[in-house]
Nucleic acid binder design. Structure first.
Lengths: 343, 343
DNA sequence: ATTCATATCCAAAGCGCTTTGGGAAGATGA
DNA sequence: TCATCTTCCCAAAGCGCTTTGGATATGAAT
């Protein structure tokens, strides 16, 4: 069923039917109702492609998911972020177009999306420091919004980020207040912008409390369970092991816990753990009482809001670029406690 | 840059340029090269929408991701599956269109995709038993392929599935051979088809070895870490606790391990654990030696292959529907060992 | 020299929609 | 009663591509 057939069935012109369905005023109430009714019974929906061609819009937003060529790794927060963004798109009649790409040729993908006019804008995931993608998209003239930020990036851009620095600053403060001085940081990959900010928050807190920074207590890598486990195991074997661990993701925190317990230690007593928690749907931090003390910020909510921001900037291109800094809440669970006595 | 402009620049008709770029024979080698060259320098790529409108194809595949309305849960295997499917699409010049939807109104989404002519076909995720979506899509006439199967479904359909029944049958056999008789099953949600098949494999093995089936050793729910933990903790508190646990996902297996260790028991000695492992990129089962003994089947590979199958059935509609049954490999890790003596 | 394939190219129609620029009633006011 | 607005509708152009149905030239075959 297409517009032509529908309008013939109604004995109206395509113009009128189109206008009736799109809420234009040049149609009487009675015919509008008649058209809407017919559209429903014949299950008519305008072809997205034809509509897009006629209006010059794609009514679609692109998400380009980089898969690290080294590790073949898909970011686990991705599913929940997408779920949030998808809600927003559905509400506004947009489609979501996904591209999976080896991070080596991500830039070409953007060129392709632009030149094929496949999307009205894109969401940028997992920004690195000085991310080249941002100036590239800027130059391309394709509207975009970034989930996170890229330090050192000169051009302006719309973004939404968690206040990673403050979150990790507070978490470190919290551990120091509990008497910990040997605090390990198990971070994400070094070139990710968020990892850099988290480390910054951590170091700043240590320095403010005159605690020397020990680089042997800092690790960074892909945030897998095994990475958390290996890193913690190594550090616990040291002569002067950490009494607290700050982890960048719940998944690696699970590995941290494993290493602690394997050594016969008790988490929250012998070793305290704080993790960042993205509130992923399949990885809840305990059911009622949180297991891990955590800095918490929902990535799904981030998806909802960032998508909203992008749609606004597409609808009103002259509006100044928006950004949002979400504060993570510090939820105290049972994985933290006072630093053990040194005897 | 569009076709019209490009052909003017070349002093050729749109027809010729289009044909040159699409590999039709009615173009001389020399002009074809000239056209290709120009297309490259002017960065011309045909508009997907216009092309789709002209050819009647969408050049896009839909993935409808149901989000359980109760649990707001996004299936964690989804990211890796998509990554696999995306590779295939990229190779064939297709786009991937994602829709996130509350599982209550999933059927309408398919109607919408069809009537808006937004996709050429869809991939069906997470089939339930007697899944209504399959006859619905069949009636709609929208090509589709199912990741998994739906027992009791009458209409024919293309699918790719892991041999869940055999995998869990073998895993149970393996445990029984080690001397275990009290074997728990921590399964996925009851109405998921795969959960049913896994339970079937498990029960069949027990029965074949004349081991009575104890329903108090069987749990099913969303496969979270916490679910694995809670279930195992409960069962270990029983008078006659299990000496082995079969888990449906690596995530819940992590919870199983936590419950075991919390009780001061040793996994692989006091309690054996086997899990199914979807080989998710962010949840590797150990780095060199697998931690968990596992039935293993890559969900990313499944994505690649199922996408391939769908594209074929779209390209050749008359071909009989394909299906593929992947065998999971049983990888022995350190989480299994002989059943402890009863003294 | 004439005929007929063959190799190259082109004009124009059509895909399903939106939107511009009217046009024909009916309502309104003088 | 007549001119003037509104109100409501329509024909046709255009979005950027593919594809049909020729047209023209070239060379081989007669």
């Amino acid at each position: 069923m297409n517009l032509k057939e529908l309008s013939q069935k109604l004995g109206l012109s395509q113009t009128t039917v189109s206008r009736a369905l799109n809420g234009y005023p040049e149609v009487s109430q009675s015919t509008r109702r008649r058209v809407e009714e017919a559209a429903r019974t014949f299950n008519y929906r305008p072809s997205t492609r034809a509509k897009g061609l006629a209006t010059g819009q794609a009514l679609a937003i692109g998400h380009v998911i980089p898969v690290s060529s080294k590790h073949e790794m898909v970011n686990p927060i991705f599913g929940d972020f997408i779920a949030g963004a998808g809600e927003t798109y559905a509400r506004h009649g947009y489609e979501m177009m996904l591209t999976i790409v080896d991070d080596a040729n991500e830039l070409q993908v953007y060129d392709g999306l632009k030149s094929r006019r496949a999307v009205d804008g894109v969401i940028l995931h997992a920004p690195r420091m000085d991310d080249m993608r941002i100036p590239h998209l800027h130059k391309l003239g394709l509207p975009f919004a970034v989930h996170g930020r890229a330090s050192g990036c000169q051009v302006p851009y719309a973004w939404l980020d968690v206040n990673n620095r403050r979150a990790f600053h507070r978490a470190t403060d919290f551990l120091i207040d509990l008497g910990h001085t040997r605090i390990a940081l198990i971070n994400g990959l070094e070139d990710m912008d968020f990892a850099h900010r988290r480390r910054d928050g951590y170091s700043t807190s240590l320095l403010a409390h005159h605690i020397p920074i020990d680089t042997s207590l800092m690790r960074s890598g892909e945030m897998t369970e095994d990475f958390g486990y290996q890193s913690t195991r190594d550090m616990l074997q040291k002569a002067d092991p950490p009494t607290a661990v700050l982890a960048s993701s719940l998944i690696s925190a699970l590995g941290v816990r494993r290493a602690i317990e394997e050594r016969g230690l008790v988490m929250g007593k012998d070793v305290s753990v704080i993790t960042h928690d993205d509130v992923l749907s399949y990885l809840q931090n305990g059911s009622d009482v949180p297991i891990f003390t955590a800095t918490r910020s929902s990535v799904r909510e981030a998806g909802r809001r960032l998508a909203e921001m992008l749609l606004i900037s597409i609808a009103e291109p002259d509006r100044p670029l928006q950004n949002a800094l979400l504060e993570a809440e510090l939820m105290v669970g049972s994985s933290t406690g006072p630093a053990p006595r040194k005897d």
